[in-house]
Write a protein that binds this DNA or RNA. Sequence first.
DNA 1: TATGAATGAGGGTTCATTCAT
DNA 2: CATGAATGAACCCTCATTCAT
Lengths: 189, 189, 189, 189
Amino acid sequence: MARQPRADAQRNRARVLEVAARVFATEGLSVPVHEIARRAGVGTGTVSRHFPSKHDLFAAILLARLEQLTAEADALNQQTDPGVAFFTFFATLVHAGAANRGLAEALAGAGYDLESAAADAGYDVTAGLRGLLTRAQLAGAVRDDVDSADVKALMTGCLSRVGSGGGADTAALDHLTAVVCDGLRSKPG
Amino acid sequence: MARQPRADAQRNRARVLEVAARVFATEGLSVPVHEIARRAGVGTGTVSRHFPSKHDLFAAILLARLEQLTAEADALNQQTDPGVAFFTFFATLVHAGAANRGLAEALAGAGYDLESAAADAGYDVTAGLRGLLTRAQLAGAVRDDVDSADVKALMTGCLSRVGSGGGADTAALDHLTAVVCDGLRSKPG
Amino acid sequence: MARQPRADAQRNRARVLEVAARVFATEGLSVPVHEIARRAGVGTGTVSRHFPSKHDLFAAILLARLEQLTAEADALNQQTDPGVAFFTFFATLVHAGAANRGLAEALAGAGYDLESAAADAGYDVTAGLRGLLTRAQLAGAVRDDVDSADVKALMTGCLSRVGSGGGADTAALDHLTAVVCDGLRSKPG
Amino acid sequence: MARQPRADAQRNRARVLEVAARVFATEGLSVPVHEIARRAGVGTGTVSRHFPSKHDLFAAILLARLEQLTAEADALNQQTDPGVAFFTFFATLVHAGAANRGLAEALAGAGYDLESAAADAGYDVTAGLRGLLTRAQLAGAVRDDVDSADVKALMTGCLSRVGSGGGADTAALDHLTAVVCDGLRSKPG
DNA sequence: TATGAATGAGGGTTCATTCAT
DNA sequence: CATGAATGAACCCTCATTCAT
C-alpha cells in the first residue's frame, strides 16, 4: 500500500498549484517563482521540489486543466446532437480560458508550448475539438470552411474580450461567444 | 521654442525606432535593449537617451503605427459606403497586427499597456474603430449587438490564427477574417 | 553504559556507510547527500541522524579505512626487513587511494581535513608511516633526506597518475610506484 | 583605429583577473564569483561582462599562465643540454603550480578541464613537456621507462607537498623536487 | 527511529538602467 | 551627444540540514 503521510505534501502541492494558477492568471507568466512560494506560504525549495522548474509548474497547471477539458470533449462526443456538442464544448473552452490568463496566453501560442506537453501527457484537446467539429460539420451544424485552428483562434478572440482585471464582465464574454457561435453556424446559401 | 535636435540625433533616433520595430515585430517584446542597440549599430546609452525606458521605446513604436491607423480610420470615415469602410478597416487592423508581433501582443492586451499610451498621445484607434462601427451599424451593415470591444476581440482572434513563425499562411488568416466579417454582417431576422 | 542501538539502526548505519563509501570512492565528494540516501534506500533524515553533517559521514568512511591502514602499519612494524615493510606499506597506501577517489582527494589535502579527524579518533596513519620510514632509513633501505611528508606527497603523485575513469590502468600506476620506490632507495654515494 | 577609452575597462579586467588569480590560488576554485567581484571592488555584472561564465574566468587565468609555460618549454628546447632543459622545465612547472593552487588543481586534473582549453588556445604544455622528456631520454639523461603522464603525476606529487597555507616552506618543496629529479635520472644498471 | 517534505541561503547568470569618458 | 562599461537587483535552481509525521 502506498504511504499515506503525504497529507502535508499533497496539500502543499495543491496549494502551490492553486496559488500559481491564480497568480499566473492574474499577473502573467513573469511572476517570479519566489513570489509564488511566498504567497503560498512555503519556501522556494518546496515549489522546486514539486515542480523542478518554472516551466514544469506552468505545465502542471495547464495539464490539470487540459485533462478536464479532454474528458469533457470525450463526454460530449457521446451526445446525440453534434451541433449542441460542439457549441457546448466551445463555450466550455472559452470559460476555462477566461478563468486563466496563463492558459489563454499559452493557447494563444505565446510562451510555453502547450500542445506538445499535452500530447506527451495524452491529453489532446485539439484532437477532441477536431472530432467534435468534424461531427458537427457532417451534421450540417457548422460551416464547412473552418478548421480546428480557426475555431481555436476564435476562442482566443473571445478570451481576449475579458480584460486582465476581475472576471465581472462575464456577460460581455458570453454575448461575444454567442455571436461567434452564430457566425459559425451553417449558412443557407 | 524647443531646440532643433542635431541631425545625428534625429538619424539615430529614427534608426533605433526602425530596428526596434522590426525586432519587436519579429521576435516579441522580450528582446534585450542591448540587442536592439547592437543591431542598430549604436550604444545602449543612445537608446536610453532617446527612450528613457524600454517601455518608452515600445510605446513610441506603437504610437507611430497607431498614428497611421488613426489616420486611416479618419480617411475611411469619408468613404460613402459605411459597411465597406468598416470591413476595410477591420482587415487593415488584422493585417497590421499580423505584420507586427509586438503590436499584436499589445493589441491582445499582453505586455505593455497600449491603450493608455495611445490615449496620452491623442491617437485613439479605438475611437476611430468605434466611429466606423457605429456608422456601419446605423447603415444596417453590421449586427447591432456588438460593440468595439467585441470587434477588437475578434481581431485578436484572427491574429492568433497566424503562428509565431513566418507570415506565409496569409491565406488562412484572410479566410478566417472573411468568416468573421461574415458573422458580423447583419442578420435578416 | 550506552544504550545498545536497535538492530535496524545498526543495519541502516552500516548500509549508508557502505553506499557512501562506494559513491564517494567512485564519484568524488560532491555527490549530494540526498543521492547517497536514495541509493542506500533510506530517507535523507536517516543519513543525518547517523552522521549529523556530510563532513561527519565522510570522516566516518575514511576512519574505517584509516583504521585498517593503521593496523597494517602496526603489523608491518613487526616484519623483520624494515625496507620491505616500508615499501609494502607505501604500495598499500597507493592502492588504497587508487581504489577510493574520496580517500585520494582527502590524502591529497583537497576537500575535508582527514588528518585531524584521524587524530581525533586515534588512528594516525602518518605516525605509522613515520615509524616505518624511520626504521627503513636506519636500516639504510631508504634515503635519509626524505621525511614522511615527502613520502605522502609522492604517494599523492602516484595516485594522480590514475585518471578519474575506471581502474583499468593499474599497470601504469604500479609502474610509477615502482619508479618512485626506486628513487627512494638509498643512494650509494 | 581601435577605440581607446577602454582604459577603465582594461584596468577592471586586469584587476578582476589579478584578484581572481590570487583568490583561486589561495582558496581554490569554489570561491563564489560574487566574492571575486567584491574583492576586486566591482559589481558582479562587471565580472560577467569580461568573463561570461566562471569557467571562462578560470580559463583566462590559466591560459595566461600556460602561455608562459609553453613559451618557456619552446625556449628550453633550444638549450644545448637536453637533461638540463628537461629538469629546468620540471622545476618551472612545480614552481608555477605551487604559486597557484587553481593551476595545481587543473594540472592535477581536478576540476575544470585544462588540457582541452589549452589545446583550443594552442598552448599545449603537455606537448612541450613530452618533447623535452623525449629529448632528455634520447640523450640518456632520464630513465627510459617513464612517460609524460608519469612526469606530470610526479609534479603533482611535489605540488601536494606544500600545504594549503602560506608558501613559506619553499625549501621543502625544492628539496622534494630535487629528490624526484634524482629518481628520474638514468640508472647505471 | 525512519521518513522525506520543507527550508532558505547561496550559487551563477541576465539585463534595464546609469554614468564616466 | 554618443558610447559601452559598470551596476546590482532579480531570476531560477541546488542542496545540506531540520523537523513534523
